[in-house]
Amino acid sequence: MTTLEVQASAPPSGRSRALGRRTAELLRSPGLLASYLWVAVILAAAVHPGLFVSGDPLRQDASQMLLSPGAGHLFGTDDFGRDQFTRTVWGTRLSLQAAVIAVAIGLVSGSSIGLVAGALRGRVDSVLMRVVDIMLAVPSLIVSLAIISALGRGTLNIAVAIGINSTAGFARLMRSEVLRVSNAQYVEASVFAGHGYVRRLFRHVVPNASRSVLAAATMDIGTAVLTVAALSFLGLGAPPPTPEWGLLVAEGRTFIGVQWWLSLLPGLVIVLTVLAVYRIGRSFNRGRTRVVA
């Protein structure tokens, strides 16, 4: 019984085997496969929107106002006669860019802070963690709003605000992972190999601690997509004609009673993207906790 469980969730073995296991997992789980495919499509749309649509997202056409979704206009048209599908595809780049920048900022600054705190411990740790606690005490949307009121509106500023905001979470996670791994016996055992502290830290602690931090970062891209959209929805992102997911939802809001698709279809794209990213993030995190017989 126990041995079977161990086999089922064994820690990384040979690299080729690990790769094989991932592929097998992928094939067994249609949800995960679909998530990877969707993310691939979204990435393609972000890099090269022309692959999916030929039109100009900003071109207005008074004769084509507020059309229902149909063959010519997959998502319908807005009150300026712009094709909503084209705008959604073109909006991918800005939305995704902001989310990735935000996570990159949070990941780099947060895990550095967490590593320093977890490695040095003592007073440095206390001070850093108090700062982190303070940041986490204020709801993230409020912090983001405060940062934006300081920096001003704009998609990049939104990304920076979210990034600064998520720093605290990454710092705390990295620190707790560093402490957890530092307590592992193999880290103590490495003392006997005669290496210095820094080498032991980077050889044993950092690689093992990074795993769940990276999984969290993946998940966080999903959260960042949500938050970017939310802040854009509130009108704090790019100014109106620019296509951006949250803004598209906000613009369609006026017509929610009748032309509901203007808001809800771009909204659906956001939902699917977040779902896919979360699903992938969860698959990274799985099997990390090992069953000890």
């Binding site: 990384p12 016996q185 880290v187 103590e188 490495s190 190999a193 044993h204 690689p207």
Partner: peptide, 21 residues
């Protein structure tokens, strides 16, 4: 490192005392 050239240790649970990676 001078000390650990002369003294080494073997732990109870080799699963825990060897880096899985």
């Amino acid at each position: 490192s001078g000390l650990y050239r002369r003294v080494q240790m073997v732990y109870q649970d080799p699963f825990a005392s060897l880096n899985p990676r």
